[in-house]
Computed example of a mutant assay.
Amino acid sequence: MRIVIAEDSMLVREGVRRVLDLQPDLRVVATCADLPQLMAAVDEHDPDVVVTDIRMPPLSSDEGIRAATALRASRPRVGVVVLSQYAEPAYATPLLAGGSSGRAYLLKERMSDPHQLIEAVRTVARGGSVIDPAVVEALVADTAHARSSPLARLTTREREVLGQIAQGKSNAAVGSALFLTERAVEKHINTLFAKLGLGTEPDVNRRVMAVLMYLSDHGGASTP
C-alpha cells in the first residue's frame, strides 16, 4: 500500500513515516512539507493513501482539508487520513461534506498509540472511515447549536448578506461584494430581519441586533 505523508513539522513527519514503514503491508513513497509538494507527490506516485496535517504552508490554514476535497474530485479512490490538533467542526464538516468513505480525522494527541494511525490508514484504503470520538462529539454539539440558533432559519444568501453587514458595510457595499443590486440587498435584509424577529425596531437598531446575533453565533468574530 503506497502512502504519501504531508506534514510541515519534520519531527512529526519522520515519526509518522517510521511508524508506517515498519508495517510489511505499508510503504511510504514520499514525504512533503507543504500543499504544492503534496499535490505534486500525488501526481508522481499515485498513492493509495495520503496522510496529511490540516495546517501547513503556504498559508497554514486548512491546506489538508483542501487537498482532501481536491482528491475527492480528481482521485476518488485515494484515502485520506487527516491529522489535527483541533476537534473543530469547521475542519471536520468540509472534510466529510462529500461523504465519509475513505476519510479519517484523527487528533494528534492520540498518536501516542501508533496502532490507531496504522488502522486508520488501512481502513481508508478499503473505503472505510475513522473519526476521532472527540470530533464526533464536537460535530453533534455544533449541529445541536445550529438547530437552536435563530440564524438557522436564514438561507445561505441571507447569511452571506448578514455576514457582510457584520463587517459594517452599507447596502451598496454589500451588493458590490456579493454581485447583487442594492434593491436585491434591501429585500434580503428585510427578509432576514423578519426571520430573526426584528420586524418592529427602527432600521439602525435592527441592523445592530442582527449583527449581534451573527457575532454570537460565530464566536464573537465577524467574517474576514
Rank of each mutant, 00 (worst) to 15 (best):
residue 37 Q to G: 09
residue 36 P to H: 00
residue 203 D to E: 10
residue 68 A to K: 05
residue 180 L to V: 03
residue 103 R to M: 07
residue 138 A to L: 07
residue 38 L to K: 06
residue 17 R to K: 14
residue 108 K to T: 12
residue 112 S to N: 12
residue 45 H to Q: 12
residue 127 G to S: 07
residue 93 T to A: 13
residue 168 G to W: 04
residue 199 G to H: 09
residue 76 P to V: 10
residue 101 S to K: 10
residue 132 D to T: 02
residue 166 A to Q: 04
residue 105 Y to V: 10
residue 176 S to W: 00
residue 103 R to G: 00
residue 19 V to M: 11
residue 53 D to G: 12
residue 116 Q to D: 12
residue 25 D to V: 06
residue 98 G to L: 07
residue 189 I to W: 01
residue 3 I to T: 11
residue 188 H to W: 02
residue 85 Q to L: 14
residue 53 D to S: 12
residue 109 E to D: 14
residue 131 I to N: 08
residue 54 I to K: 06
residue 72 R to D: 03
residue 206 R to E: 09
residue 185 V to F: 04
residue 164 Q to M: 15
residue 35 L to I: 00
residue 157 R to W: 03
residue 99 G to A: 06
residue 167 Q to H: 02
residue 145 H to D: 13
residue 160 E to T: 05
residue 38 L to C: 11
residue 40 A to D: 14
residue 103 R to P: 00
residue 144 A to F: 05
residue 137 E to I: 03
residue 165 I to T: 07
residue 110 R to L: 10
residue 3 I to V: 15
residue 54 I to E: 06
residue 119 E to S: 15
residue 149 S to W: 06
residue 178 L to C: 07
residue 35 L to F: 06
residue 157 R to F: 04
residue 188 H to T: 02
residue 125 A to Y: 02
residue 116 Q to I: 15
residue 51 V to S: 08
residue 71 L to R: 00
residue 186 E to D: 11
residue 18 R to Q: 13
residue 189 I to N: 00
residue 162 L to T: 06
residue 196 L to F: 04
residue 170 S to L: 04
residue 160 E to Q: 15
residue 7 E to G: 01
residue 17 R to C: 10
residue 138 A to F: 10
residue 10 M to H: 09
residue 12 V to Y: 08
